[in-house]
């Protein structure tokens, strides 16, 4: 599957696929919420669509002395970053830009999320929003290093930073089998950079919604959609790095990729509702003293195995 040259026109399809995945995630979340509130599941599944229509019509609320330029940039950033990530994510045999440093590209994009989240918090000129923006950065310095080592591990095993080669290297054995710690750290980091579930503290209820406190209308829509899109791209990238990409019996490659991505995405959303928030002040010590050494150890073990096998 390496080196399949693609017509750039396919790039137009990527946002559609991403949009469908994000919408599926939102619908599933809606179903969970509806079930928790004792409403019919279908009303929950329709909720994202209704919410899109509501937010499209809602007038923007503006705060006093808001830095509108940075605020708008931050609001758009998450969705744009998710779209830029899709460039290096393979869908079965196809990949938009199979660049030699695909994994680093993904990493660079999730660092962009730092800027985006902080700008959303900053722009509103509101105490709660600002606390949310700072919280995200505090969380980011906890998850980023473990995430980097989780990304490095499959690259070490595949001798390449090219995503398609990482997928190819898993023909015999999926990486999740012999690098489970890296997989779990990566999944946790996906939740963290999407500000989701236990890592949604930047938008936590304990700071009155944090970065989301003051955003409304289209800005809010873009941010919510961006978070789902980041979650979806994270799931899709985990499929490529750890779950064998499109490999699987019977179904075509691209369908397997989508099925696996959806399953992982559903897992992210289901798990998230059952966990209480992990505040950054609690996370920092654990991330640096426990998780980072574990991730390093995982990288070391994989490196030794790779070196021994030659």
């Amino acid at each position: 599957m390496t080196g399949a040259v693609m017509n750039p026109a396919w790039a137009l399809l990527a946002p559609v696929v991403l949009g469908v995945l994000a919408l599926a995630g939102a619908a599933l979340n809606g179903v969970f919420v509806a079930r928790a509130e004792g409403r019919p599941a279908l009303s929950g599944a329709a909720r994202p669509v209704l919410e899109v229509m509501r937010l499209m019509r809602q007038r923007r609320r503006v705060t006093v002395a808001a830095d509108r330029l940075l605020w708008r940039i931050g609001g758009m950033a998450l969705l744009v970053i998710a779209l830029l990530k899709t460039a290096v994510i393979p869908l079965g045999p196809w990949i938009l830009a199979d660049i030699s440093v695909g994994i680093v590209w993904f990493n660079a994009m999730d660092v962009m999320v730092w800027a985006g989240m902080w700008l959303i918090g900053w722009g509103a000129n509101s105490a709660h929003a600002l606390a949310g923006g700072y919280r995200f950065l505090a969380q980011a310095v906890s998850y980023e290093l473990p995430l980097m080592f989780a990304l490095v591990t499959p690259a070490v095993a595949a001798h390449s930073l090219r995503v398609s080669e990482v997928v190819d290297a898993q023909q015999d054995l999926w990486f999740v089998v012999w690098m489970p710690v890296a997989f779990l750290v990566f999944c946790g980091s996906v939740l963290a950079f999407s500000a989701w579930g236990p890592f949604a503290t930047a938008a936590g209820a304990d700071i009155a919604g944090g970065i989301l406190t003051e955003v409304s209308g289209v800005d809010r829509l873009l941010i919510m959609a961006g978070r789902y899109a980041l979650l979806a791209t994270g799931a899709a990238f985990a499929v490529a790095l750890f779950l064998g990409g499109g490999s699987g019996p019977l179904l075509p490659d691209w369908l397997w990729t989508i099925v696996k991505t959806l399953v992982l995405l559903a897992g992210f959303i289901a798990v998230s509702r059952r966990l209480s928030a992990i505040r950054p002040d609690r996370l920092a010590e654990v991330a640096w003293i426990v998780v980072l050494p574990l991730a390093l150890l995982q990288t070391l073990v994989v490196s030794i195995i790779v070196a021994v096998r030659g």
Binding site: V101, V104, W105, N107, A108, V111, M112, W114, A115, W118, L137, A140, V141, E144
Partner: peptide, 13 residues
């Protein structure tokens, strides 16, 4: 790509 990564991270901090 690493320039982009490092610089955005650095500027955010």
């Amino acid at each position: 790509v690493i320039t982009i990564l490092m610089m955005v991270m650095e500027m955010a901090i």
